[in-house]
Write a protein that binds this DNA or RNA. Structure first.
Lengths: 127, 127
DNA sequence: CTGGATCCATACGGATACTG
DNA sequence: CAGTATCCGTATGGATCCAG
């Protein structure tokens, strides 16, 4: 997709799909499902996320009204992120998705390996 | 994410999330949910997808065992794509997601506008 | 601690042209 | 019809440095 804004925004699904598009959003929301969490705590538990992407992701989620941001007025500044009420329904479905992923991941892996093997095994495939 | 393969593949969720990551996969699967479909038919109905991306997307889905590909031996070659049994559960959940997106899209839009307005409205924001 | 700003590599994705 | 191959602009995302 080009500039992502010049495109067909008549399709409502796209809005949410775009948010789900970057894996981090999903991971963050699933994590926040367990309860409110602070920036670096998220950073540690998400595993693999750079500080920049976590920041960007959280801002996007906040913009879409899916995550709330609460600044605790403390000596070392603390910021707590939490799901908004609106996000709850979405997160439930995301959890359903994750469950499917968990249980079917081995099958997907198998299929993938079979596919790859079939390719490299084919006699006429030169590459 | 870097090379997408050098990354943490210990996390099972990632595998499926990556597939869901590109919006096209979801759109294609939701379309195939209605029944088997041919290449150009998909191309027409998906709207916005380039021929290349549809091709790439379908190959990925096939590789993961989520979509089957059947070549009809006809004069003008025809290829029919369909969901595999394994994909059915996934697609159901994706449909759930799409439903949420449909019903909540206005709210997301609102939140987004409010967020943007708050930014440009803030006095101290120079940018 | 919680980020924003910048720099830079690369992978994604569109357009186009070409095959079976 | 159903793709594959190439070219090439652009957005994504990591690394690093800096600020409140």
């Amino acid at each position: 997709m080009p500039p992502r804004d010049s495109v067909n925004h008549a399709c409502p699904v796209r809005d949410v799909l775009d948010r789900i598009g970057d894996a981090w959003s999903v991971l963050v929301m699933l994590e926040l499902r367990k309860g409110p969490c602070r920036f670096n705590a998220l950073r540690r538990v998400i595993d693999g996320v750079s500080q920049r992407m976590l920041s960007v992701t959280l801002r996007h989620l906040e913009r879409d009204g899916l995550v709330s941001r609460r600044v605790l007025p403390l000596a070392p500044p603390q910021v707590e992120y939490a799901l908004t009420p609106m996000a709850l329904g979405l997160v439930e479905r995301l959890a359903q998705l994750r469950d499917w992923a968990d249980t079917h991941q081995p099958l997907v892996r198998q299929a993938r390996d079979r596919y790859d093997a079939a390719l490299s095994g084919s006699p006429e495939i030169t590459r």
